[in-house]
Design a protein around this nucleic acid. Sequence first.
DNA 1: GGAACAATTTGCGCTGGCGCAAACGCTCCA
DNA 2: TGGAGCGTTTGCGCCAGCGCAAATTGTTCC
Lengths: 235, 235
Amino acid sequence: MSIVDVSLGRNLASLELFDALSPAALDEVRALARFKHLTRNTRIFNQGDGSVRAHALIEGCVRISQSGSDGAQVVVRFITRGEMFGTVALFTDGRYPADAETLTECTEVSWSEADLAQLMDRHHRIALNFIRIIGKRLQDAQNRVRELATQRVERRIAHALLRLARRSGHRNSEGITIEFPLRRKDIADICGTTLHSASRILTPWEKAGWLVTRDQRLTLCRPDEIEQIAENGET
Amino acid sequence: MSIVDVSLGRNLASLELFDALSPAALDEVRALARFKHLTRNTRIFNQGDGSVRAHALIEGCVRISQSGSDGAQVVVRFITRGEMFGTVALFTDGRYPADAETLTECTEVSWSEADLAQLMDRHHRIALNFIRIIGKRLQDAQNRVRELATQRVERRIAHALLRLARRSGHRNSEGITIEFPLRRKDIADICGTTLHSASRILTPWEKAGWLVTRDQRLTLCRPDEIEQIAENGET
DNA sequence: GGAACAATTTGCGCTGGCGCAAACGCTCCA
DNA sequence: TGGAGCGTTTGCGCCAGCGCAAATTGTTCC
């Protein structure tokens, strides 16, 4: 890690949760923070674990996934730089409702329940930021429910890819590349389908040149075509 | 409306959002509140409307439903006595993300965006309550995503009925009656299926005596049998 | 470089559940 | 009393997408 990373990495002002906080308040936040560096494919916490902390990601990508008693799995969300995660449990039953696993090398920061409560108490803005963030996620989740309930697989996959590209895509000469590794299984678990169906749908799109998979990274070369499918459900 | 209703109806302490507030704080809350009495099947707000307010229900039942650009509909949630609704929009884009319609005669109370902000600012507890509530709803929504993604219709319907019964059921001699009117279409829209499939599944259950529909109200006579289906996916 | 492993593709058969359309039953109102 | 309207049930045909299994390709680690 370079010097730049250290200073940039510890710049908590870039975290959505601490947006618009005064420098003095950020100092308090920093004083209570616990930083951690993690390698790829590391579990940060497991579904059902107690003694929860509030997490945020400074660098890297994390996959949040949930599995039912029958073993079936869904990807709840991908977390990227600046986003918080595992925080809702602090205010509900004190157990993580899902697993968190790093997809890349990561720098994570976390606060204990008591410390976050204290910070929120002293800095009202944090609570408001929190509300805004999970309010947005609640809307996302409800849109997802609607999609799952009403659209067929092809269209759901198209939507999912576009959403990922919009949120975590980097434009380059080939198209828009989604910044974290995405296996077919991940795409299936996002869209509520099977690995097989996801493959069956994506392969023709690759053949048509609408997207490329390279080094587990997905690049949308023809977002317009994919948009078509997302909108009309047809080519 | 009787005198009892009026005094009880205005007891804002029974609203989840104002739980554990001091009497003085509740007075402030009451001073800014706008009460409204509504007849059955009334629209409270429409998806997309601006100039949002924060709502809570003192008496009655409200259906929150969302429809996509293609007309497909899902029921997001049923609101009953004490619950807040339409509040998340205040913190996101300022537009209601769904429709709200009364299913019974209702007493509703609401606050303007500015007034709620002021109340939250003066009484930190309100913000914390808010976080707890939408945190819980976020978890609910994510569980629903998982169900939709992994379980088949029969099981989803079983789960939905049990959840409704648990949250809004009254025990009586026949079994547990869900307190608000539920048409087949509603059940379908909760579970992400069609009216037809819902009917095809529920009719055998009625024939088996596991439940009864009377006056648009559903009574679970054999929750144990329905639990079986919810758990195992089989009888 | 090659063996062991992980991820992906693909063929095939089957079925859950959708879509359509028609019939049935209840309630309200003229 | 009858008919208009809403909600529900049910028959029938069809197909999207799952499950299984095998082949293929890509990746990692000696």
